[in-house]
Design a protein around this nucleic acid. Structure first.
Length: 313
RNA sequence: CGCGGAGUAGAGCAGCCUGGUAGCUCGUCGGGCUCAUAACCCGGAGGCCGUGUGGUUCAAAUCCCACCUCCGCAA
């Protein structure tokens, strides 16, 4: 008899995990995700990826406004899950939910716990220049990403990894490990390793301020920042006319000058705009001016006149 | 109706306010120069100026109206 599984999650990475569970023919009796939220310029209500995935597999979806009411308690009783799997759900599970299933609640977290607990674990790991990160599968408890660990797998972060490439890799890894961990848990072979509190760190949510480039910093640091924020929400700086310019792709290079100053502007090939930083320089290859689409540096230079000596900030 | 920018040649832009031959930097094609070149010179092709069977006008890329699409901010 397969355990009755309740899945709770919201974004892409959760949908990838849910897909893997369906692939593994898990007995998903229900899916809980957050309510559709307004997105984009005209605030169009958009269903989260997990909802689409569940519907595609014909599993009923529940989108509660809160987990702390009678309705959700009744929902649990009705489904009577033996195991709850949570991936990037976005709501805190109250104690009565955590303690409900006899096999417990498992969570997929995109970092090597106890480091980088919290919402922006992948972004912060790239920003900090970590050489590796990974996936941890753990039992949930009432803290934020503080539960006992079951499985962990590592992946290196290369100096060309972006949030996108890392996210995709970790999503696949997380999906695989989640399937594996749930099987271990159900057959009683899962081990519990407590987290070492002293080594824990917290990955603060990304704010607008985290996206602003500060050319006083080193080119290496700026490159990390850019990669950590690509393809969402992107790092940016301001052009001499005070307009925002998102930096899509850049590379640290040799060079020096007053921080923020353009020290080279080339339209050869895809072109590059080299900006002096606090240490080294940043060669901007692809960017997106405010109100415009993405373009390479050469295209930008042809239309707008940004020349050597001008300052970005 | 949240605020704002933008749709002109394959790319990026100017021209619009002050209506009157469609421009710039590239790319592309042909030719030339060169030991050679992504360099330089000469020449060519490529546009119904987002859509409208709209309005104004002798005349609209340009002014007015409606709509479509893309994007930045905010959520």
């Amino acid at each position: 008899m397969k355990p009755r599984i309740l899945f709770m999650g919201t974004p892409d990475i959760a949908a990838t995990c849910l897909d893997a569970l369906f692939e593994a023919e898990a007995n998903i009796v229900g899916v809980v995700t957050r309510i559709d939220k307004p997105k984009g310029r005209h605030a169009v209500l958009t269903p989260p990826p997990v909802k689409l995935c569940a519907e595609a597999h014909g599993v009923p979806v529940f989108q509660p406004r809160t987990l702390r009411d009678e309705a959700f308690a009744a929902y649990l009783d009705e489904l009577a899950p033996d195991l709850i799997l949570v991936v990037a759900f976005g709501m805190i599970l109250p104690p009565n939910v955590i303690s409900y299933p006899r096999y417990g609640c498992l969570n997929v977290h995109a970092s090597l716990l106890p480091r980088y607990r919290g919402a922006a674990s992948m972004q912060r790991a790239i920003m900090d220049g970590e050489s590796e990160t990974g996936i941890t599968i753990m039992y949930m408890d009432e803290g934020l990403d503080t539960g006992d660990m079951i499985l962990k797998q590592t992946t290196p972060i290369s100096d060309t990894d972006t949030l996108e490439t890392l996210h995709d890799r970790l999503a696949e890894m997380g999906a695989r490990l989640l399937v594996e961990a749930s099987e271990l848990v159900v057959c009683g072979k899962a081990t519990r390793t407590p987290q070492n509190e002293e080594l824990s760190t917290y990955a603060e949510k990304i704010s607008r301020a985290d996206c602003k480039l500060d050319f006083q910093r080193s080119a290496i640091a700026l490159d990390r920042q850019i990669r950590a924020l690509t393809p969402m929400p992107f790092a940016y700086c301001l052009t001499p006319d005070q307009r925002t310019m998102k930096i899509i792709c850049a590379r640290p290079v040799d060079g020096s000058g007053a921080p923020g100053t353009v020290i080279r502007a080339s339209t050869d090939g895809a072109g590059e705009i080299v900006v002096a930083c606090g240490e080294g320089a940043l060669s901007i290859r692809t960017l997106q001016p405010e109100g415009k689409g993405k373009m390479d540096a050469a295209a930008f230079l042809r239309g707008r006149k940004l020349s050597v000596g001008e300052v970005l900030f």
